[in-house]
Simulated scan of single mutants.
Amino acid sequence: MNAIHAAIVSAVEVPYTRHPDDTATTEQLLTTAIARAVSQAGMTLADVDGLGVSSFTLKPDHAVDLALRSGLSLRWLMEDTNGGASGVNMLQHAVRAIEAGDADTIVQVAGDRMTASDFQSVVDDYNVITRDYVTPLGMGGPNAMFAMLTQRHMRQHSLDETAYGAVAVAQRRWATINPGAVYQSEMTMDDYLMSPIIASPLRRFDCVPPVTGSDAIVITRQENVRAGQSSVRVSAIGGSVNWDRHEGDGLRTGLAGIAPALWNRAGLNPSDVDVVSVYDDYPVMALIQLADMGFAPTGNVRDIADRLLSDHWPVNTSGGQLSAGQAGSAAGMHGLVEAVTQLLGDAGNRQVPDARTAVVSGYGMVTYRYGACANLAILERV
């Protein structure tokens, strides 16, 4: 029997907005993304026999309810609740399901209607730990926790605010040519440094803007790819759940433990990658993940910040969440959709020339202090 290989054949984003229509629902966002991704793939809903869903605000409905409302008849179904790690996590499951023959074509979708009140509800009731121990302290969300982490990171690596500003400023450059970003105006380092302090040392542009929107991709058997149709394969993928992170200082993610083996499996090095999508709920986390993935071979994190500003390095080419926005659970899909879009050659004015390889990281599920999940996918254009 020939080996079954999975291919990603489409990636779509339902436009993000800060001010959703009063009649818009999470269900509509997700079903719209599903329909658009399937259409872009040159398929119909009847071709889909697998569905992966991630959403904070779909409740009380679940993945099975969304399948019904989307008009899908399925052999494979999953629901992921792991926040910023959900996109790569669902992709790993979907690829394995197709390789095992459990499904032929899977749509992976994530998104939320995320108004200010929706965001506050998610923050306050994120999980039992947050609800019972963190929210009663009056923390009001993750800003304070990541402010303390940023302070520690600054001391550890002898950095100043401009290292974190480099992430925000560099990503804003990409956002100015992304019509889907909610922040598209140019931003200088002076603009960043003059923005208000939210939780020292975090400034306004260190914090992602909550938005409403959704993202989806279609993964199918390689044999289903039409002649002449571009596709993307997953060369290596893996994840790590690290409860022991809470015993440490939070300055490493699980990526540090899994990245070397994944690079080896893909037969690539960080220097071979054309496009990088790193989970960027805060600049400090972008810097930490880039270092953990091997983009700071000398161990000098400042080198990453300097490269972001000087090289027009293709990192978070959508503008990332810091400029494009964080659409709830779609945050875990945003970087994946951008990477696939780049590899398919569909990124318009922000297209990276001859992009053949990409790496995508996920990070999320803050418990007491730090994210507990981290994962990584290395992608190649077929």
Rank of each mutant, 00 (worst) to 15 (best):
I219Y: 00
I378G: 06
Y363E: 09
V48F: 03
A291N: 15
G141M: 01
Q321G: 13
A103T: 11
D47M: 05
G335Q: 10
R307V: 01
T130P: 00
D61S: 13
G267L: 07
Q229H: 10
G257M: 06
R350D: 08
I98Y: 02
M365P: 00
D191E: 05
I98K: 02
S158D: 14
E338L: 05
V53C: 03
G328H: 05
E99G: 14
L77G: 03
N269S: 15
N349W: 06
A331T: 07
M333S: 14
A181F: 03
H93N: 12
L137P: 02
W263M: 08
Q156H: 15
L251M: 11
Q40K: 12
Y370R: 03
D346G: 10
D80H: 11
G180E: 08
Q351Y: 10
G87N: 07
W313K: 08
I177N: 04
A100R: 12
R307G: 09
G239R: 06
A67K: 01
V337F: 08
D49Q: 07
Y279W: 07
G84Q: 09
L255P: 06
W243G: 11
V337A: 14
G141Y: 01
A236D: 08
V14R: 11
D125M: 01
T150E: 09
S310L: 06
A327V: 11
P179I: 03
D22G: 09
A199Y: 02
A256W: 07
V107Q: 02
S231I: 02
T317R: 11
G345E: 09
A110I: 07
R131W: 00
Q28C: 04
V48K: 08
A168C: 05
L149S: 07
A377T: 07
E338A: 15
T367A: 14
N127M: 04
G299K: 09
D249H: 10
Q120D: 14
V273T: 12
A372I: 14
G254H: 06
A261N: 10
G71E: 06
A46M: 04
E223T: 15
W263P: 06
A46V: 11
A372G: 07
V382I: 14
L66C: 10
R113K: 15
I177M: 15
S271I: 09
D47L: 03
G364R: 10
V64W: 08
W243F: 13
T135A: 14
I197Q: 10
M90D: 01
E186T: 11
M1I: 13
A170Y: 04
V352L: 11
A266C: 06
G141P: 01
A144M: 07
A116V: 12
V315C: 12
A170S: 15
G83P: 00
W76Q: 10
G83C: 11
A236R: 02
R265M: 12
A331G: 15
L343G: 13
A355Q: 12
I288H: 02
D125E: 07
D21C: 05
D65I: 04
G332L: 05
V225I: 15
V315D: 06
I258L: 13
R173H: 14
N242Y: 00
G371R: 09
L336N: 10
N316E: 10
N242G: 04
N224I: 00
A236C: 04
A144H: 07
Y183C: 12
E223Y: 00
H19Q: 08
M187C: 05
V211C: 13
Y126T: 00
V9S: 13
Y368W: 11
R69G: 12
H19S: 10
